[in-house]
C-alpha cells in the first residue's frame, strides 16, 4: 500500500474527527497518528502482514481502507478512521463499550474483523448525533446523568438504539413472558436487553431512566 493512496483517506478521517469534536488536542493527536501511519506504510508494503482492502460506509461516508487482515472493526474505527468515540474496554466481547450499529444491528466491534464488512453501513456514536444536534438518546443520557466516567457511554447509547429497534421489530427477550406476544417496553425488558453493556461506575438506574424516557415510557423513578 503506497502512502500516496493512504494519506487522503486519513485526511478525511481527520476532518470527520475534527467535526465531531472541537478539541484542539484531539486534532493534534490525530495529525500525529496520521504521520505515523504514513511512515509505517512502506514497511507494511515490503513483506509485512497480509493486507486486504475494504470499503465501509461509516456514518454515511465512504471509507476505503487497506488493512492488516487482523484489524478488528473497532481498531479500524479508532486507529485508522480516528473515530475514537467507540471505546475499547475488554476487547473480548464481555463489556459492550465497543458497541456500534452495523447494517442496522448492534454488534461488538471488537469481535469482528473490518474486512468482513465489505460495503457495510457502520454507525458509531459520532454518527448518531452531533454536539449541536444530539440524538434523543444522547440528550436523555445527559439529562438523566446516565454516566459517571463516561467510558461505557458510547457503547451504552449505541446499544440502547439497537434495543429500541429490536423491541419495535418484535424480537423477544429472556424475560418476555409470552413468546408469541409482541414484546413491550419495560424496565425489566431493558435491563435484560442491555446486559451486554457493563457500567463499572454503576450508573444503571440513570441509564434505565434515560432510555425509558426516549422509549416513551415512565421513568423507573417516576
Amino acid at each position: 500500500m503506497q502512502s500516496s493512496n493512504h494519506l487522503p483517506i486519513t485526511r478525511r478521517g481527520l476532518l470527520a474527527a475534527g467535526a465531531a469534536s472541537a478539541s484542539a488536542t484531539m486534532v493534534a493527536r490525530t495529525a500525529q497518528a496520521q504521520a505515523q501511519d504514513a511512515a509505517r506504510s512502506p514497511d507494511t508494503a515490503a513483506g509485512g502482514p497480509p493486507l486486504t482492502t475494504v470499503t465501509l460506509q461509516v456514518n454515511g461516508k465512504t471509507q476505503r481502507l487497506a488493512l492488516d487482515t487482523r484489524t478488528t472493526l473497532l481498531d479500524a474505527l479508532r486507529e485508522h478512521l480516528h473515530l475514537t468515540g467507540t471505546k475499547k474496554g475488554c476487547d473480548h466481547g464481555q463489556c459492550g463499550a465497543c458497541t456500534v450499529i452495523v447494517d442496522g444491528q448492534r454488534i461488538n466491534s471488537c469481535l469482528t474483523l473490518a474486512v468482513m464488512h465489505e460495503g457495510g453501513a457502520v454507525t458509531t456514536i459520532e454518527g448518531l448525533g452531533t454536539p449541536e444536534r444530539l440524538h434523543p438518546l444522547q440528550a436523555a443520557f445527559v439529562k438523566h446523568d446516565g454516566f459517571q466516567c463516561g467510558y461505557c457511554t458510547p457503547g451504552q447509547i449505541c446499544s440502547a438504539a439497537g434495543v429500541l429497534d429490536e423491541i419495535a421489530k418484535g424480537v423477544p427477550s429472556h424475560v418476555s413472558e409470552d413468546l408469541n406476544a409482541k414484546p413491550m417496553f419495560s424496565a425489566a425488558e431493558l435491563r435484560e436487553r442491555m446486559s451486554g453493556n457493563i457500567c463499572r461506575c454503576g450508573a444503571y438506574s440513570n441509564i434505565v431512566d434515560a432510555i425509558t424516557e426516549v422509549a416513551g415510557g415512565t421513568g423507573a423513578k417516576a
Binding site: Q105, I107, N108, L111, S159, G162, H174, M194, G196
Partner: peptide, 14 residues
C-alpha cells in the same frame, strides 16, 4: 428460550 438465555444482544446479532 435457550437462544435468548445465551450471550448478549450484541453477540446474538452476530
Amino acid at each position: 428460550r435457550a437462544l435468548l438465555a445465551g450471550a448478549s444482544g450484541q453477540l446474538r446479532n452476530k
